[in-house]
Design a protein around this nucleic acid. Structure first.
Lengths: 194, 194
DNA sequence: TCCTAATTAGCACAGCTGTATTAAAACGAA
DNA sequence: TTCGTTTTAATACAGCTGTGCTAATTAGGA
């Protein structure tokens, strides 16, 4: 009879410990021993929850996506004007606070690592591109886009801008603080809307 | 009496071998043994040219910057209109061909790695931000910028766009090919110029 | 209480890591 | 040639890596 207890919550705890290790020591520092220590567990205990290190890796990656997804879904519950909604969604992706910055930094580390292991670990598809397409399509449906806008180019531009700002916020948070990010995003959205 | 021979060229050869290893196996695969094998040298030989692995790392990073710098300086020798010049410079940074893609990918790997070793290796400053500032300042001096443009925001936006597109070109080159990059950059520059 | 399964801790092992050391080879100048 | 320096090769070593294995501990149901 399995203990109904916090098996899954424990897995999340370990995954979050992995995040913290990656944040602190980078991907090369994300060893099972470091992660176990950060999580306050023994090697054997960690190995009980995750058979191999790769199992932990994909679990930790999925957790990032799940958390981000939940945060974004929350925005839909608010009542916002179309433009406000678009801006709010983008600001939930780009690192404007500690949570989002951690997730984004860890995500980049994952992606860069997994890229060279695509034979054994399948690279998760980028949801940001999809979201960008949807947001711009939404603005167009609402007749908010300037007539001079070319959809295909606008998608590429906003998509690049989001990840570019995300990178800069991760690598240089003191230069590109949250207020500056916010202003830039709003500036861009304003520039493509009537 | 030192042999005048290809000591420095050999160092470049090794550094480029390191690039190839990083490209193929990622930063975790960039061990001295892998690099030595890729360069066709023994461990001892490699160690003769670079006392420690960190020495090789900073040398290989500097080589990336040096190569990029030279390529950009070449553009100044051409006779281009202001707008053409700006676009040409941006396209020399962003990965539109094999050389630039290799450099950009390796550069990102370096930056991500060095970030967690800032105590022992000093993180090189970002020249792209400087260049972006200069390019936009140049456009303004030439009276080419639209009056609605806010300089500070335009810098942040172009800077983000450049690195964002660079990331996307590195991670997904078959989707974001060179033609698409070119079109996007030109589209953006056109959008901020009269 | 006892019993069984879940959970934990610890150790062992083979492999890879960076680097130090040492000797051998190659080579240019006398 | 012979010498002295540059260059190469090979090995050794301590430390860390992921993971397999085994025994100890815990805890919940009978």
């Amino acid at each position: 009879m399995p203990k109904i207890v916090n098996h899954d919550e424990r897995k999340n705890t370990i995954a979050e410990a992995m995040w913290r290790v990656i944040l602190d020591k980078g991907m090369e520092g994300a060893t099972v021993r470091n992660i176990a220590e950060e999580a306050g567990l023994s090697l054997g205990a960690l190995r009980y929850y995750f058979k191999t290190q790769d199992d932990l890796l994909v679990y930790a990656m999925d957790l990032v996506r799940e958390r981000a997804k939940k945060r974004i879904e929350k925005i839909l519950l608010q009542s916002l004007s179309p433009k406000e909604l678009v801006i709010a969604m983008i600001l939930e992706i780009v690192p404007v606070n500690t949570d989002t910055r951690i997730e984004m930094e860890v995500w980049f580390a994952f992606i860069a690592y997994v890229k060279h292991r695509s034979d054994t670990i399948d690279v998760p598809d980028d949801q940001i591109l999809e979201m960008t397409e949807r947001l711009l399509g939404f603005l167009q449906d609402q007749q908010l886009l300037k007539s001079t806008c070319q959809m295909e180019m606008e998608i590429e531009r906003l998509y690049g801008l989001i990840d570019g700002i995300a990178i800069h916020a991760v690598l240089n948070p003191e230069r590109l603080d949250s207020e500056r990010i916010r202003k830039t995003i709003i500036y861009h959205i304003d520039s493509i809307c009537r």
